[in-house]
Nucleic acid binder design. Structure first.
Length: 156
DNA sequence: GCCAACGTTGGC
DNA sequence: GCCAACGTTGGC
């Protein structure tokens, strides 16, 4: 079992959207490293923090669970989509998404400043200077700590 | 394979 | 809106 942090701009897709939908395909990842995490390393049952980027404030807002293995991201074939990729074919897709399911929305945002202020999270990938990856691996201890900070109901 | 130019992310 | 810190592209 592995642990992750996944970013989304709430204007694009928020924790409330996931709560409403119950589950969703995590589409739109167009970075090879992030893709490889989803395609090769993420497994059904893994846990992931939901992070709002470009938000007020930016930070961790909830928890989700990987509910479906990586499959081709349908938007790479959709000419009308911002995520269209002319080099991708049905036979040889380039971009993949996993399916994630809603677990919990936290009572409040654990902001980036909160994360930075916690020495136990000093090694978290998201806190690295210049870190921009939208899907990053985390650790059980880090997730546990964030859940604690959030006053989460879910117990690890 | 190098690297300059350009594009993107995302905090502030 | 600014800009640091990347990632990608393409000429050579």
């Amino acid at each position: 079992m592995r642990y992750w942090l996944m970013k989304s701009e709430p204007g694009n897709y928020s924790i409330d959207d996931l709560k409403r939908d119950g589950k969703t395909d995590w589409t739109g990842v167009r970075n090879y490293q992030a893709r490889n995490f989803m395609h090769k390393e993420m497994k059904v049952g893994d846990l992931a923090l939901f992070y709002h980027s470009n938000a007020e404030p930016s930070g961790v807002v909830g928890l989700m669970k990987v509910s479906g293995e990586a499959r081709p991201d349908r938007f790479q074939f959709d000419k009308k989509s911002d995520y269209y990729d002319e080099k991708a074919t049905r036979e040889e897709p380039i971009w993949f998404c996993t399916e994630v399911a809603f677990v919990e929305k936290f009572a409040g945002v654990v902001s980036l400043a909160d994360l930075r202020a916690n020495p136990k999270l000093a090694k978290m990938e998201i806190l690295r200077k210049g870190s921009r990856l939208s899907v990053t691996p985390s650790t059980k201890d880090e997730i546990k700590e964030v859940l604690k900070m959030a006053g989460a109901i879910f117990k690890l």
